[in-house]
Write a protein that binds this DNA or RNA. Structure first.
Length: 315
RNA sequence: GGAGACGUGCCCGAGUGGCCCAAGGGAGCAGUUUGCAAAACUGUAAAGCCGGCGGUUCAAAUCCGCCCGUCUCCU
């Protein structure tokens, strides 16, 4: 039941480290990066190469199409059985990625709330389009006051979701939430599954990281990110697919459609978006306890030592 | 050489005599986060005075003059 989590902001060397550890200590890799799930997008997501994936088995990569986006619940539903199976086979599982919310979905589980059915979603869309967020807030005020106070009035995603939950289940989302939170608090573990976990968190000083990001962005553009987008457009995708609204892709699409003037601006925009992503990833992982933070280049020996210790100690 | 336009914070940009100790956006900084999460949302510092100098006026980023700079057009 040994799980090694490898997390960190984008472009901190998670892939390299995971390959290294898996080849040194054995085990298989389970991705928790939200965009590696899509088979059509490769260069902009810095996906491990086919060759790398040939050496070490990887899971939860290229499992869906950008025309069929998955959410965190879908992800967890697919990933958990795979992890369980690997652990059953006494393999070390490396959970590798940067999407904190997706990791949380695995470690803590999702609330007991259904995905909003299509008819209710349509009802919600229509109401929102016609009357904005106000009627939703009024519903919450009346039916789910805790959620009403919890969300900022502009947070239409979460307000609508709370209302949709109420419409489909007839119970307030805050109630479901409270139950689940209580369970998690009581378990007081790094995960609800009883796994033995070592959490390797990678990070790099900001200035150094900015240089890495700049360099990597340049490389993506020279390595064919633009051609990748062009060929997606040629094969019938519109560019409106949710995963194509992600960093690197949205900027190249803007370049393609003339919203960005030239390649330099495009590159600059990608760098800025990437830095902003890194910042919010730091903020997310900051509050996660139980992790050990390492520098991916300076602490390699320490990481290997800690992981081997972790693996052997409890064999 | 001639005609015109413009010059406002790191960037874009509103303001055309008092309500400007200068709107808004972006970038920056900080944060939230349970079925869109590389998403969505929140909070926040920053112009010693609006290219420079001088003038008009009770009052100028806003009017006038000169200078500097940028751009467009003409010969």
């Amino acid at each position: 039941m040994k799980v090694v989590i490898i997390s960190g902001p984008t472009a901190t060397g998670k892939t390299d480290l995971s390959l290294q550890l898996a080849s040194d200590f054995g085990g298989e890799i389970v991705n928790f990066d939200s965009l590696l799930l899509y088979k059509e997008i490769t260069i902009g997501t810095a996906k491990p190469t086919i060759e790398e994936r040939g050496k070490i088995p990887h899971h939860m990569i290229d499992i869906s199409s950008i025309s069929r986006p998955l959410n965190a619940a879908d992800y967890a539903k697919l990933a958990l059985p795979i992890i369980d199976q690997l652990l059953k086979e006494k393999k070390i599982v490396y959970l590798v990625g940067g999407s904190g919310f997706y990791l949380q979905a695995i470690l803590r589980g999702m609330y007991d709330s259904p995905t909003t059915p299509k008819d209710i979603l349509e009802k919600s869309d229509t109401l929102y389009r016609q009357e904005g967020i106000t009627p939703f807030r009024e519903i919450l005020k009346k039916e789910d006051f805790l959620s009403f106070t919890r969300y900022h009035e502009n947070d239409h995603y979460r307000i609508r979701r709370a209302v949709e939950h109420f419409w489909t289940t007839g119970t307030p989302l805050s109630l479901t939430r409270a139950k689940k939170d209580l369970e998690n608090d009581q378990s007081n573990q790094m995960s609800i599954h009883g796994w033995d976990i070592h959490h390797v968190h990678l990070d790099v000083p900001k200035e150094e990281h900015f240089e890495i990001i700049k360099h990597r962005t340049k490389k993506m553009l020279t390595n064919g990110l633009i051609q990748e987008v062009e060929s997606l457009l040629q094969s019938g995708f519109t560019g409106l697919e949710k995963p194509l609204q992600s960093i690197g892709y949205k900027e190249v699409l803007d370049l393609h459609f003339g919203l960005i003037k030239n390649l330099e601006d495009c590159q600059e925009r990608i760098v800025i978006s990437t830095r902003q992503l890194a910042k919010s990833q730091r903020t997310w992982f900051n509050r996660i306890s139980g992790k050990v933070t390492y520098h991916p280049l300076l602490d390699t020996a320490k990481i290997a030592e800690d992981v081997s210790h972790f693996i052997q100690l409890k064999l």
